[in-house]
């Protein structure tokens, strides 16, 4: 699925996406390939979590499955974890969650 020059633990669900999904855990600080470039992963990624495929500016749409899944609330660097701390729903806010951004232990 992914570009050959992208770490095979990362899944690209649609060519239009600006995020990739981890299909296996990736540790913080790991050097990984993403679209032919080497990046350092900032935060540990569990299976099913998202990572920015390219730079995403605050206010930009985040696209997964080729569809908008919400709006970036902060500038997101390539390789950064995309989750509750930098992405919000365009429908129902997920404020009810008291879990930390990286997920509960």
């Amino acid at each position: 699925m992914s570009d050959p020059a992208t770490d095979d633990r990362l899944l690209l669900l649609s060519p239009a996406d600006n995020v990739l999904v981890a299909r296996a855990p990736i540790a913080a600080g790991e050097r990984i390939w993403l679209d032919g470039r080497q990046l350092t992963v900032g935060a540990a990624l569990s299976m099913g979590h998202k990572l920015a495929r390219r730079a995403i500016a605050a206010g930009d749409s985040v696209v997964k499955y080729g569809a908008v899944i919400g709006t970036a609330t902060a500038d997101i660097a390539p390789g950064a974890h995309v989750h509750l701390h930098n992405l919000r729903s365009n429908y129902t806010a997920t404020y009810a969650l008291d879990a930390p951004a990286g997920g509960t232990p």
């Binding site: 099913g48 998202k50 899944i69 995309v82 989750h83 969650l97 997920g103």
Partner: peptide, 8 residues
């Protein structure tokens, strides 16, 4: 959210 989903 623990499983990586952020929005509805």
């Amino acid at each position: 959210a623990d499983g990586g989903l952020t929005t509805i």
